[in-house]
Simulated assay, not measured.
Amino acid sequence: MSETLREMCKTLRLAYVADIYETVDYDTPAQFLEAVFAEEFRKREAAKVQRLIKKAKFLDSKSLASYEWHDQIRFPAHIDQTGLSSLSFLEHRENIVLIGSPGTGKTHLATALGRKACEQGYDVRFFRVAHLVEQLETALKQDKLTAFRKRFEKVELIVLDEMGYLPFSKAGSELLFQLISEWYEQKSLIITSNLEFSQWNRIFIDSRLTAALVDRLIHHAHILSFTGESYRLANALSKSL
């Protein structure tokens, strides 16, 4: 491709035409243009998905394709595996809460659902809850809390992993409560926890704050219970035999 044509593509923001035009099979000029533009659109969408996945900051690349569904996941009456995988809860800004013992597949499923949401064009963020609280407390100390909260204005799904592994300070609990309250009925959340709701006082200290938070989370939520032994532990034990 000549430099003149390359500059034209750049001006028209056709990022991929210069790389693909020679590989396109065609019989007519119209077929050529259609094929080139179709590939341009495809590559743009693929690049967008990769940008969304990068922005989400998942800790690994777990997907639904690699997830091992098992009979020790108890679904509520109003959603099943197919409904969950379809991400229909995002359309209604509903929440998903995954509760159960460590190592039973909660984080894998939460990550996989978040990744699929990125693939469908949703803006997603993934946090270990303890790290999010640390960031909130730091933002408060640096007088940057408003700017930090604004980062979520266009985010549509937030994954909060490991709610309950570490207790929070009173200030941290209140900051997290305020943030989740802002997201209430505006965004969808996926939360994983090893604690039943009745045990969340261990995390948030203030029983009234805990009750108010749980009320917001479960109002529009699908709650899945994970039972059974840890996959990680079972895998480690099998390798030691």
Rank of each mutant, 00 (worst) to 15 (best):
Y26V: 02
E68N: 14
E174F: 00
K144F: 01
G164Y: 02
L189M: 07
N201H: 09
L145F: 02
E40W: 03
F89R: 02
I96A: 03
T104N: 08
R93C: 13
E22Y: 05
I190K: 01
D123M: 10
L157H: 04
A47F: 01
R74V: 02
Q72N: 13
D80P: 05
V97M: 08
E162T: 05
Q135S: 15
Y122E: 08
R128Q: 15
K154N: 15
L179T: 01
R44L: 09
E39D: 14
I99L: 13
T82L: 09
A117I: 01
F152I: 00
A117H: 02
S193C: 10
S2P: 12
Q199F: 00
A130Q: 14
K144I: 03
D27R: 13
F197A: 12
Y16T: 14
D25R: 12
S207R: 06
A171N: 08
E137S: 13
K57D: 11
C118P: 06
A77C: 00
R202D: 14
Q186W: 00
Q142R: 09
R232C: 03
F168G: 04
N194T: 07
F226M: 03
S238A: 15
S85N: 09
L33C: 14
L59E: 09
H70G: 15
E137V: 15
K106C: 09
E174A: 10
A47Q: 11
A77I: 00
L87R: 01
S225V: 11
L175D: 10
D80Y: 00
H220F: 08
L136R: 01
L113Y: 02
E174L: 03
E3C: 10
R74W: 00
I73F: 00
I53W: 00
S66A: 14
T227H: 14
A139Q: 03
V24G: 06
A18P: 00
E137L: 13
E182F: 09
L98Q: 07
S61F: 00
L5H: 13
P29T: 04
Y165I: 05
I79P: 04
A30N: 14
L136H: 09
I190P: 02
A171T: 14
T210A: 07
V155G: 06
E34P: 00
L5P: 11
A130F: 10
F126G: 11
V17D: 10
T146C: 11
F197W: 04
E137H: 12
G164S: 11
R44Q: 10
W183Q: 10
H131K: 15
D80A: 06
V17G: 07
